[in-house]
């Protein structure tokens, strides 16, 4: 496939991940900023608070989307960095598949964490 299709996806996921992570970090760590947007979460990392979010369909899907988008963006970036290095031909040829494998594995694990909590 044309490299430009992958690249355009990275640019789009870059914009998406900007809003998603900004929202994530603001809600969970920057309480003063969150206050500006009228959001306030008590003790965001306590077990009760985390489980409240994990069992709400809205938050669970937010995290699964964030996971997918961030993994695509990050692994495309990592692939570009790795491609610029001199590898033995075998690795150079299979780099795309290695990246895809890692991506699917990490996405599977992350979704498992999220769904495991959602159905608990």
């Amino acid at each position: 496939m044309r490299q430009s299709y992958f690249r355009v996806l990275q640019l789009i996921t870059g914009v998406a991940v900007f809003f998603l992570i900004a929202a994530h970090v603001t809600a969970l760590r920057l309480d003063d900023f969150a206050g500006v947007f009228g959001v306030h979460i008590e003790e965001p990392t306590s077990w009760g608070s985390v489980m409240d979010r994990a069992t709400s369909a809205g938050w669970a899907s937010f995290y699964i989307i964030l996971l997918a988008v961030a993994i695509y963006h990050a692994l495309y970036g990592l692939r570009v960095v790795l491609m610029e290095l001199p590898w033995p031909p075998v690795i150079a040829r299979s780099l795309n598949y290695i990246m895809m494998g890692i991506g699917i594995a990490v996405f599977g694990y992350g979704t498992f964490i999220a769904l495991n909590a959602y159905y608990s």
Binding site: R2, Q3, S4, R7, V80, M83, E84
Partner: peptide
Amino acid sequence: VDSGHGVWL
């Protein structure tokens, strides 16, 4: 140019 070691690097 739209190849692995082309413009996008």
